[in-house]
Structure formats: structure tokens, C-alpha cells
């Protein structure tokens, strides 16, 4: 096999390379392929070669290449090579999927900042479409932050959310209820008609959540009810001599 490829190398490269600048790549590929046939880890190496080839050629070119080799070289393991090609393509697809997932996670992270905007007040501007994975991830982070900062009020601004489905709406309501269980209040602001529709259909309890028309009035309200720490200690009625 090795000899057959090397012997026909020039000719094969000529037929395979679509343009002159790809000749080098095809030549390297064929030489390495010929070499791989006699190696111990033949399967792995060939798959790797196919993967590298797909960096400069598309799947069609790879298949055409395998077909050409099959017609020119006697005893070429056609089926096996096609199998490797499929596996190489699958490998690339999986890598892409992983990358996409990572990017999505990064995006989710960036799109969900939790800002301590005032003493005892957290602001969460939600941006973009929420899916259930992102919503759950956000709920965990927000609950953690609310507990650790002991924020009195959490303002959730959904101005940047185009719409939500019932599953995500359900997650949001659960998140609000969970925040209430920590003893903090939730102010929801920036609700568009679509979101109002979903939330009410889901049976959001407006006694649990304070609604404000826009971020400005939400902030005004929040600052108004946030306890001022300098006052608090004088508040004790039974504090005998508790002066500070």
C-alpha cells in the first residue's frame, strides 16, 4: 500500500489538488497516509490525518480523494477509509459542539451580571433569551449572592429579555420565591406585554413580588425601603444603655 501511494504520488497530487497552493498539503497528506498504513496505531493516525485534512479541504474533497485512491490503487481499503472519514467528521462535530457549549456558558455568564448597586440592594439586569439551563444557573448564583451579601432587596430588570416561555417563567417565579425565603424582597421591572402574559398565565403571586414600571422608579423605591445601617442600632426599644 505504502509503495503504491508513494509511486503514484505526483500523479495523485496533481489530480487531488484543486489549486496549486493546495498541492503541498495534499502531498504531505499522502506521504503521511502512506506512512500510517504500516504503523502500529494505524487507525488513530489515519483519523487524525483526515481531521487535519479537513482544515483545508471540505468533506466532498476528502470523499473524492478516497474514491480516487480507491480507483488508482489496487487493494485500497475503501470501506475502512470511508469509516475513518465519517469518524473524523464526527470528531470535528463533537469538538464544535463542546466549543459552542463553552461559548454559551460564557455568554450566559456575561449576560447575567449581579451588581451590588447600593447598600443592601442587588441589581440583576437580564439580557437576551433565557433557556432553562441558564435560568437555573442564574438562580443558583443569585441566591448565593443574595445570601452572602444579605441584600434586603433584589431588583430584577427584564427590559433586555424579548420573551420567556412557560418553563423559564416558572423558573423565574421559583427564583423569586426562593429569594423571599432568604428574607429579601424582589422588585421586578421592565416587563413587556409578552412577559406579563406568560407570568400571569403561570399564576405569579404579585404579593410576593413588587412590580415597578421602570428601573428608575424601582431604584427610588428600593433606596427608600432599604434600611439605613446608621439608624438601625438606635431602633432597639428595650436596649438599656445601648447607645451606639
Amino acid at each position: 500500500m505504502k509503495e503504491a501511494i508513494i509511486y503514484n504520488l505526483k500523479e495523485l497530487v496533481e489530480d487531488l489538488a484543486a489549486s496549486d497552493d493546495l498541492k503541498r498539503e495534499w502531498e504531505d497528506f499522502l506521504v503521511n497516509l502512506a506512512d500510517a498504513f504500516s504503523s502500529e496505531d494505524k487507525d488513530e493516525r489515519i483519523k487524525e490525518l483526515f481531521k487535519n485534512l479537513l482544515d483545508f479541504a471540505d468533506a466532498d474533497a476528502l470523499i473524492r480523494g478516497i474514491e480516487l485512491l480507491n480507483s488508482r490503487i489496487g487493494g485500497f481499503p475503501f470501506i475502512e477509509m470511508l469509516k475513518f472519514a465519517v469518524e473524523a467528521l464526527d470528531g470535528i462535530r463533537k469538538e464544535k459542539e463542546t466549543r459552542l457549549r463553552e461559548l454559551n456558558d460564557i455568554l450566559a455568564e456575561l449576560a447575567t451580571p449581579i451588581i451590588r448597586i447600593w447598600q443592601d440592594i442587588l441589581l440583576v439586569p437580564l439580557i437576551g433569551t433565557l433557556d432553562s439551563h441558564r435560568a437555573q444557573n442564574m438562580a443558583e448564583k443569585l441566591l448565593e449572592r443574595t445570601a452572602s451579601t444579605r441584600a434586603k432587596i433584589v431588583i430584577v430588570d427584564v427590559t433586555g429579555v424579548p420573551m420567556i416561555d412557560t418553563i423559564v417563567g416558572g423558573f423565574l417565579i421559583e427564583m423569586f420565591n426562593a429569594i423571599k425565603l432568604l428574607g429579601s424582597d424582589v422588585i421586578l421591572t421592565g416587563i413587556k406585554p409578552e412577559i406579563a402574559h406568560t407570568l400571569v398565565k403561570l399564576g405569579v403571586d404579585f404579593n410576593m413580588v413588587i412590580i415597578k414600571r421602570d428601573l428608575e422608579s424601582a431604584l427610588k423605591y428600593a433606596i427608600g425601603i432599604a434600611p439605613d445601617k446608621s439608624d438601625r442600632k438606635h431602633g432597639r426599644k428595650r436596649g438599656d444603655g445601648d447607645e451606639e
Binding site: 443558583e140 441566591l143 448565593e144 421559583e174 427564583m175 420565591n177 426562593a178 425565603l181
Partner: peptide, 19 residues
């Protein structure tokens, strides 16, 4: 009641439990 841990709060809320 005070000091409910955040993950406990999430769990209760997801189960639909109100105190």
C-alpha cells in the same frame, strides 16, 4: 425563620413549598 441556606431556599421553592 432566619438563616435558610440559599440552596435550601431554591429546593423549597422548586417543590412549590410555602412556609
Amino acid at each position: 425563620i432566619c438563616g435558610i441556606q440559599p440552596q435550601v431556599a431554591l429546593t423549597l421553592a422548586q417543590m412549590g413549598i410555602r412556609l
